[in-house]
């Protein structure tokens, strides 16, 4: 379930200011925020290069506190480097979140496009199904879906993808309905363009900004949801580095070696924070036009 505030295009667009968004002072700030997305992705891509050690093999004394023995974030209960595990966990969390967002955009976008373009009975049926999904607590249903499919990382991604598209279907459908009433669509129809051509060439492009903005505001939520599922054991099996699971498995060390369970949790927070700030930036840049 996406619970980011949906981006609703303003009814009357704000008066165009003189220079393009990128060159304005606060626009530059937004560009910096949005480029956090690139930075986060770079860290995820380069995790194997950035990680100083193998994340799965013990490489030092167990339970070293952060900074000691050359381990920036310390070592865990069997002497694995926490920094390396966090970097690899970052990588899998981020790519998992992107994969689910992409599938949500794709499935939801397709359903929203079909419903919005066809209208009538198809619209009613598709939107009733969408509303049914929206009326259920998505993270909890996702847990049940994984439990039924039988655990594993891919099953978790499928389960979350199953509950994550309805929000996008709503957004895209709403945009399409607004656009369908615009003169350029009528012009295309009079010019003899077919339904498919109108949908793909004249309606879909207009719905992209709202969908992209909603998605970028939503990535942070998804990172948190996936981390919670991983915490509950619904991620990759041990010993794979996973941010949520690494916290859950090391809770017993909390009172003595706090850094072992806390560091992966902080990594989740930093990842979600970067995603949220970047999402705000993307909204300001795209929504301002």
């Amino acid at each position: 379930m996406a619970v980011a505030e949906p981006y609703i295009a303003p009814a009357t667009p704000p008066a165009r200011r003189g220079r393009p968004a990128i060159l304005r002072a606060h626009g530059r700030l937004d560009v910096a925020a949005a480029s956090l997305l690139v930075l986060v992705t770079l860290i995820a891509l380069l995790a194997p290069v950035l990680a100083p050690h193998n994340p799965i093999q013990p490489v030092g004394l167990p339970m070293q506190s952060p900074g000691s023995g050359g381990f920036l974030l310390g070592t865990d209960s069997i002497g694995r480097d926490i920094l390396s595990r966090v970097l690899f966990g970052w990588r899998s969390s981020w790519f998992a979140a992107l994969a689910v967002i992409a599938s949500g955009l794709l499935i939801g976008g397709l359903i929203g496009l079909v419903a919005g373009t066809l209208g009538g009975v198809a619209d009613t049926v598709l939107m009733r199904i969408t509303d049914g999904f929206l009326a259920l607590p998505a993270p909890v249903v996702a847990i049940a879906v994984v439990a039924a499919l039988g655990g594993g990382f891919v099953h978790t991604l499928i389960a979350v993808a199953v509950v994550w598209w309805p929000f996008y279907a709503r957004i895209v459908r709403g945009e399409i309905r607004l656009l369908a009433a615009r003169p350029h669509v009528e012009a295309a129809r009079l010019a003899g363009a077919g339904r498919l051509r109108i949908a793909v060439r004249h309606l879909l492009p207009g719905a992209v900004p709202a969908a992209v903005i909603t998605a970028s505001l939503d990535v942070g939520n998804l990172v948190l949801t996936l981390a919670a599922l991983s915490f509950l054991g619904l991620g990759q099996p041990q010993p794979a580095p996973e941010l949520g699971a690494d916290t859950a498995h090391n809770l017993t060390y909390l009172l003595q070696q706090w850094w072992i369970p806390v560091m992966p949790g902080i990594a989740v927070m930093v990842l979600a924070l970067a995603a949220n700030i970047a999402g705000d930036g993307v909204r300001n840049l795209l929504g301002d036009r």
């Binding site: 948190l224 916290t247 949790g265 979600a272």
Partner: peptide, 22 residues
């Protein structure tokens, strides 16, 4: 508002235990 939206519940829980209990 921004920071709070990004903290996973389990992190808040364990940090809370560290501070207010331990």
């Amino acid at each position: 508002l921004i920071a709070g939206a990004s903290a996973p519940a389990f992190l808040l829980g364990i940090v809370g235990i560290l501070i207010f209990y331990s």
